[in-house]
Design a binder for these strands. Structure first.
Lengths: 353, 353
DNA sequence: GGCAGGATTGTTAGCGCTAACACCCGCCGG
DNA sequence: CCGGCGGGTGTTAGCGCTAACAATCCTGCC
């Protein structure tokens, strides 16, 4: 039995009675092709089921139309949503997205992931790993790859797209204060995450501004319901706590559970506000008042920023004249901030009910 | 300022004083290269910061070492976890993973995604879209691409890896029956999902086996807490319902919320069992008894199955590994079932307390 | 000392595509 | 009637790499 290989451009050319270059021209929408010729070529392409060879094309054009996404934990709602937003947007711009999941979040892992992606010749990289270590590692990435970080806050010298965590935290805290609480406690996320740092900063700043008594944040949370629960057990024993702002919804869930188990009613005895607005937040007991961030939008914006960087300082350096210096893509480092909104539900109320 | 292009193999060869072919041999671990030569080449590679051109290599080897993953909703915990497991495993096998998120789940979208991935010359595709429509569409995919579906149950003529939904559902239902409930109600997932169908079938079968009264399933759920809540409202009004098996944890969460709001205690008045064991399940009020599926493992197994298919029928034949003769495996739509386990927590108890 | 035969290295020919240029045609103005 | 022009097309030369084969260099051994 004859082994039939996939048709190549020459096969199409033969079938259409033209040269392979004309086929190429049709494929790339070159202007000067006679309509009748174009049609003949298109017919031949369809009949043979021809599919251009991406590798060959890449070899000569030096463009892969592929973007890399590095993510620490795609299992969390936030990162997963961003990845989704990124892919959707990438498709519109006709880019492929390849992912690199990080096993750990140390500097080495990040650089390894970058390396891996570069081996595949991605034209740019989006990093969804908002830990300080990751950002530090990113600074070490050679300047010839476009990199955009998401959720890494206001860090310098790196293009980034992020929700304004601090503003969101301030909003949540002020809301609780407005309700009449003397002060607000904070269940913080991991210190190594910039989001966590910024939320903590926003909380603290709100307290300061309103002249509310400063209290220590409850540190050591890891975003999980588990740690929220552990903190909740401690809070249950402390009647002075009437309002808690949690760094994310999952921890709020654990907290809610502990409170309920300890016999403290929410929101009558303790008010709770979360951050993220995961889809389930509405169905917690009670429905969680929280700060919504539009992850999808973050992903889309990050992608757009990356594409812009690629377009500006293109891959492989387009024929910029000699004497033209390198584009300062790093120096300009566009920073997009997206405004979160407070979603009021039933987990926060005036103290005492 | 001299414009420097990325070094190519010839540059390395020159620097090391060998031919480019020797460099290629070093890169590809060919046996007959003198150690001293190899070292010289490696040094040159490091010094020049040489990075092989993937496109050129692909062009001649006809291998991209890239796999595609099609996913409907990566935002859900299950799909996200599988994607994670897949990527982890892919890295071990030295494959890249590119994702294609589906906007809708109709046949056309699936085929478009497949097409897109084929344009990128992926060597195989994993589909995480366990709807019946998706499976139908997959049958239309040309046989020259390896495809593995995950979570699409026991469908014929398609390689697949899935959790044994039916067994899990039976286990959950029997557990409730063992507790002493007269019968068990079922909050079903969307009919178009095979997982949902199988869980429903498992539930029904368990009822039959045990001679428990058959009741109609509550249909129309869409996996979200929202629909769980809506069903919960209905159940609250019906005191005959003492035990509910939910097709997933999110719906169970909504159900719990509605029950609590309606003044029915869990598990004293109503027992609830979920499916999935998402990380938060442990912190629901009360902690959810549920069926755990090991998504990570599903992802890993799917990847392994795909790699095997590629190796067996793959492009350019099997890799020239250090192994011995040809392996006798053949692509005959392997079907892997993974056993779920029941995780007992506090949401189910004997009727009446 | 010479030669078989394996180890080691070099040379050549593409992989399938696009860029650059050459070529052909018909038409215009001079 | 010729040179020039500009659409439309073909020809040629790589892109950077690996596979095949050719050419060396060693060994050990008679």
């Amino acid at each position: 039995m004859e082994f039939e290989r996939a048709p190549v451009m020459a096969d199409v050319a033969r079938a259409a009675g033209v040269s392979h270059q004309t086929v190429s021209r049709v494929l790339n929408d070159h202007p000067n092709v006679r309509p009748t010729t174009r049609d003949r070529v298109l017919v031949a392409i369809r009949e043979l089921g021809y599919r251009p060879n991406a590798a060959a094309r890449t070899l000569v054009t030096r463009r892969t139309r592929t973007l890399g996404v590095i993510s620490f934990n795609t299992t969390l709602y936030g990162p997963a949503s961003m990845l989704y937003g990124i892919e959707q947007a990438a498709r519109q711009y006709d880019y492929f997205v390849t992912v690199a999941a990080l096993a750990a979040l140390d500097r080495r892992s990040v650089l390894e992931a970058v390396d891996r992606l570069r081996d595949q010749a991605v034209e740019g990289i989006i990093v969804i790993a908002p830990q300080t270590t990751a950002v530090g590692a990113l600074a070490k990435v050679p300047a010839d790859v476009a990199v955009v970080a998401v959720g890494c806050g206001t860090h310098a010298s790196l293009a980034s797209v992020a929700v304004d965590n601090q503003a969101g935290a301030e909003r949540a805290t002020s809301y609780l204060l407005d309700l009449g609480h003397r002060t607000v406690h904070h269940l913080a996320g991991p210190r190594s995450w910039l989001d966590a740092q910024e939320r903590e900063a926003g909380w603290r700043r709100s307290l300061e501004r309103r002249g509310a008594p400063q209290v220590d944040p409850m540190a050591g949370g890891d975003w999980s319901a588990r740690t929220g629960y552990e903190f909740g057990v401690r809070i249950t024993a402390d009647p002075s706590v009437t309002a808690v702002f949690c760094a994310n919804d999952h921890m709020a869930l654990g907290l809610l559970r502990a409170l309920q188990q300890g016999g403290r009613r929410v929101p009558e005895d303790v008010s709770v506000v979360g951050f993220d607005d995961i889809p389930e937040a509405e169905y917690f007991g009670p429905p969680l008042t929280t700060v919504r961030q539009d992850f999808d939008e973050v992903g889309r914006r990050a992608l757009r920023a990356l594409i812009e960087m690629i377009g500006a300082a293109g891959p492989g350096g387009p024929a910029t004249g000699p004497g033209r210096g390198p584009r300062g893509s790093r120096a300009e480092a566009p920073r997009v901030a997206i405004e979160p909104t407070l979603v009021v539900r039933a987990s926060a109320a005036r103290p005492g009910g």
